[in-house]
Design a protein around this nucleic acid. Structure first.
Lengths: 179, 179
DNA sequence: TGGAGCATGTAATTAGTTACATGATTGG
DNA sequence: CCAATCATGTAACTAATTACATGCTCCA
């Protein structure tokens, strides 16, 4: 139940059309909440019907015509309440860990290649996050709460990718015999 | 598309009934792939119709009667192929990171309590994993590939929970003013 | 005999994915 | 004027969640 809140957050940061949102979900927002344009349009419709956002009245609502949305007070209230809401972490569901367990039962043939592929992907993502950190959060510069929160989110991404690269490296080592 | 593979793995480790599987998914298997009994029964039906598993012929298939399943050769082959299959990591979707981003926009009122709650949950999970590691994987004891793979999976769980406890601690520090 | 617990399921809903459809704008 | 691209959507499907239904066994 987080997609509407992701959209509300994005629209508060900057009113946008569906396609603009899609592009932003492919970049910064997608680093912690991914969504496709189909999901986004469907959810925009729901949020509009719920009175949490509205289309800016600049252009007529015909198909193929750009339509910009902004957040209404009800939407902001909903988001504010959600930030403090009590929601348990979702149970883990990780296909790669599962595959290692499966490999323990049917053998690990072919797994090494796949682990190396994942390792390369995570290393690339990590490098990208670190570049963003170097660019947007140079040492000793954060002052506003918004800056600190954004940096924390990015740190989460960096540390998650660091975990994966380290764990995959260990797994590749451990997969070849000899401890 | 990993639930059927999770079930095949579990059944290869030990033939079980639906409820037994449900219990095992609440424990060890659920540490990296969670599932409810409804999902499990539905998927058992599909796998049986697909000829990948079969019910042990011991008891008649009436409702309320325990029914044990075992994996057929086709099921083992499918699992073997899946271990080596090329599958990209799923895009990240983490509600807590998203909430921090939202807090940057509408303010972080009430967030601290929620972060502390999550921190406690992750610390508890971490302690549990570490107890399992101490019990099942004492130093210098692993020899078989299966042992090494199982330990790697557990290390994944431990390091993920370590990441969350560390990150949440940082976040709580960073949330109060003064760097 | 009747209720607790074991065991297997169905139904309805929600969220996410994949594939496709259509209109508007613009530059060659 | 037509192809590329921008932009908004629909439809069908798959996966997961939540709520409910039903039958069997055992023992107080």
């Amino acid at each position: 139940m987080s997609l509407p809140h992701a959209i509300l957050t994005a629209l508060l940061e900057k009113p946008s059309s569906g396609l603009e949102l899609t592009r932003r979900f492919d970049k910064s927002i997608g680093y912690f909440w991914s969504a496709t344009h189909q999901q986004i349009y469907r959810e925009l419709g729901k949020l509009e019907r719920a009175g949490q956002i509205r289309a800016l009245p600049s252009v007529q609502p015909t198909r193929g015509q750009k339509k910009e949305y902004e957040v209404l007070p009800a939407g902001r209230e909903e988001l504010t309440a959600w930030v403090a809401r009590s929601e348990d972490p979702k149970p883990v569901r990780d296909p790669l860990l599962l595959r290692l367990r499966a490999a323990g039962v049917v053998g690990s043939a072919g797994l090494e290649v796949e682990l190396e592929r994942h390792l390369a992907l995570h290393q690339r993502q990590l490098a990208q996050y670190e570049a963003i950190e170097a660019r947007d959060f140079p040492p000793e510069r954060q002052s506003t709460e918004q800056d600190r929160l954004r940096h924390l989110v990015l740190r989460g991404g960096i540390e998650l990718e660091t975990f994966w690269t380290k764990w995959l490296t260990d797994a590749l080592t451990g997969l070849r015999p000899g401890t």
